[in-house]
Design a binder for these strands. Structure first.
Length: 229
DNA sequence: GACCAGGCACATC
DNA sequence: GATGTGCATGGT
């Protein structure tokens, strides 16, 4: 087994033993997962939760049709806590138009579309970039794709697997080529990375108890502050 | 009050 | 093709 592959499996095993199954994505329905994927762009999840709670209270997130029917300014008001609310309202609208038009009101047609084709189509939707597309593919549609996020970049560049300034697709390939293409694995791995990142790899994060604490690993802080030798 | 968070589109060079 | 900028709230 190649070195990178061994490393990625080893990290996964450490994270899984430490954190356990993550049960992602945090959302009740497929539509809710997709909406959450857009709302969480460059935004803390706690703020997204407030926005989704507003959408639930309004009853509009029950179906694509209902969500499509609310006006842009009302939608923006509901998702206000998630930040960038004007931009995100527009992005949600574009996404809903795509889902409804291409996949049908219940998204039933999705099963007939190959993952690669669906990814290309998602990337063509205004407001859906590579990370959001992969999040939707993996967590809403159960497709085996790896989601690369800011934590992935930060953590694995810190550990020397990547330099960190590669483009999204390059990093994604590193993971997809070195791991078996299993939806379950990709689902859990990304969730574990976010868990690790939130707790140990951002400002004011604690140093103690990091599952990757070992001689060769840097961790903590945006810029490495701790190095256990 | 500064800094940050599970990005993306668009302008400019 | 690379780099910079606007978008905005809520928590630390």
């Amino acid at each position: 087994m190649p070195k990178s592959s061994r490393f990625l499996h080893s990290v996964y095993n450490k994270l899984y033993s430490s954190f356990g199954p993550q049960g992602w994505w945090p959302g009740d329905t497929r539509l809710e997962i997709i909406v959450g994927a857009i709302l969480t762009q460059n935004t803390a999840w706690s703020n997204v939760e407030k926005a989704i709670a507003n959408l639930k209270r309004s009853g509009s997130i029950e179906s694509i049709s209902k969500l499509k029917s609310i006006g842009s300014s009302r939608l923006a008001g509901l998702i206000r806590p998630a930040g960038y609310y004007n931009i995100k309202a527009k992005r949600l609208k574009c996404c809903l138009d795509f889902l409804h038009g291409r996949l049908g009101p219940d998204m039933r047609k999705v099963s007939s579309i190959k993952t690669g084709d669906l990814r290309k189509e998602l990337l063509g939707v205004h407001g859906i970039g590579p990370e959001t597309a992969d999040s939707i593919l993996l967590y809403a549609f159960g497709r085996p794709v790896f989601v690369v996020d800011a934590y992935t970049r930060r953590i694995f560049s810190r550990h020397g697997l990547i330099s960190g300034d590669e483009d999204y697709e390059t990093i994604r390939e590193v993971f997809m080529k070195n791991l078996s293409s299993e939806e379950r694995l990709f689902n859990e791995y990304h969730a574990l990375i976010v868990n690790l990142g939130k707790n140990f790899c951002r400002p004011k994060a604690r140093c103690e108890g990091c599952p990757l604490d070992s001689a060769k690993y840097y961790f903590c802080k945006v810029k490495p502050r701790c190095k256990r030798a």
